[in-house]
Design a protein around this nucleic acid. Sequence first.
DNA 1: GAGTGGATATCGTGATCCGATATCGGCCTG
DNA 2: CAGGCCGATATCGGATCACGATATCCACTC
Lengths: 102, 102
Amino acid sequence: MRDFIRGAIRLHILHHAAEEEIHGAWMARELASHGYGISPGTLYPTLHRLESDGLLVSRQEVVEGRVRRLYRATEAGRRVLEQDRSALRELAREVLGDQEPG
Amino acid sequence: MRDFIRGAIRLHILHHAAEEEIHGAWMARELASHGYGISPGTLYPTLHRLESDGLLVSRQEVVEGRVRRLYRATEAGRRVLEQDRSALRELAREVLGDQEPG
DNA sequence: GAGTGGATATCGTGATCCGATATCGGCCTG
DNA sequence: CAGGCCGATATCGGATCACGATATCCACTC
């Protein structure tokens, strides 16, 4: 358990997949830009698991001469996302207290 | 990875251990009261790991005829806690949007 | 000193993480 | 059409971690 971030990766993926179609390499860059170093050996199996759990659906498309697997959140995925969001909200309330930012 | 909560357990433990002395069974109840089902087989190894990583220190004491191992956060533990807190803050900002709480 | 009860420690199994490496497939070149 | 290129995706093996069940520990009681 390097970071508590590890477990938040699913949340992050669902969050973006609920808003638009995403693909693995894009997600890797997105996570990296937030400082979440995730390796392909973690990311792709995670995407597959989310799909086999019915939280994501994928299709393949050719974009700029590259085959990409595009993922979107399913209804079940959105429900799980909402559950995770409220868990996050409670966690933030508990651990961050009522501190006002700035 | 049932929940993103799994990884947040370390954060939760550090949060409480930074404020007061805690012990395993108390932490189990605290986590359970927030709906985080954590088994002893996860909690105790986690405490040991945090201690061997230098984030917690422990001492034994007899309380009400029971031996308890009391944990407190070290300075390093508090630093990690702060790092995790700001990661949590950024995650909340990213995934929860700019919604105002309450 | 045997029993009690709550807290803590450990064991084996299965899942997960990880970096490195391999594969894939459309595009371009010739 | 064959071959090379390149980014995206998939897979492999070792190490770590989560988990529930079970065992152990220790102060107290009788």
